[in-house]
Simulated scan of single mutants.
Amino acid sequence: MAAISAQRVAVAGTAVTYQSAASGGDTAPVGGGLKLHVANGGASPITVTVVTPGTLDGLAIADAALSIPASGNGFIPLTSVYRDPVTGRANITYSAVTSVNVAVISD
């Protein structure tokens, strides 16, 4: 599992640096204004899952799962609902990682 750092987007613009999605998943910071950007450069769609650790009245809260088409992009807001109580970070998995790049951006 690789740790992704947040990159702040400046008012004048920012060239965001991407990293390859890790086959064992990634972790990312959570909080207001943070978003996970996933760029799928592969020839097949993938699913990105952000684990929702917790329950509501004893019932598990569903994980966030986003399907990203081949050669497509997607964003998931990394709100505090995804905060792992042990690490304080979001846990992210991918159905495939070949040609998949990720970045966490902040307003």
Rank of each mutant, 00 (worst) to 15 (best):
1 M>V: 10
2 A>V: 11
3 A>H: 14
3 A>R: 13
4 I>H: 04
5 S>P: 07
7 Q>R: 04
8 R>G: 15
13 G>P: 04
15 A>N: 00
15 A>D: 08
16 V>M: 01
17 T>P: 06
17 T>N: 10
18 Y>N: 05
20 S>Q: 10
21 A>T: 10
29 P>I: 05
29 P>D: 08
30 V>K: 03
31 G>S: 06
32 G>I: 06
33 G>V: 01
36 L>M: 09
36 L>F: 02
36 L>P: 02
37 H>M: 12
38 V>C: 07
38 V>F: 02
40 N>P: 08
40 N>D: 13
42 G>P: 08
45 P>K: 03
45 P>W: 06
46 I>T: 10
46 I>V: 03
49 T>A: 00
49 T>N: 13
52 T>C: 14
55 T>S: 12
56 L>E: 14
57 D>I: 09
59 L>F: 15
59 L>P: 02
61 I>G: 06
61 I>W: 13
62 A>R: 11
62 A>S: 03
64 A>T: 15
64 A>S: 15
65 A>F: 08
65 A>I: 07
66 L>G: 13
67 S>Y: 00
70 A>P: 01
73 N>C: 10
73 N>E: 15
76 I>G: 00
77 P>I: 09
79 T>S: 11
83 R>E: 09
84 D>A: 01
86 V>H: 01
87 T>A: 00
88 G>Q: 02
89 R>V: 03
89 R>L: 11
89 R>D: 00
90 A>I: 03
90 A>R: 01
90 A>K: 01
93 T>E: 11
93 T>A: 15
95 S>Y: 00
95 S>R: 09
96 A>K: 05
98 T>C: 05
98 T>N: 06
98 T>G: 15
102 V>G: 09
102 V>H: 07
104 V>R: 12
106 S>A: 12
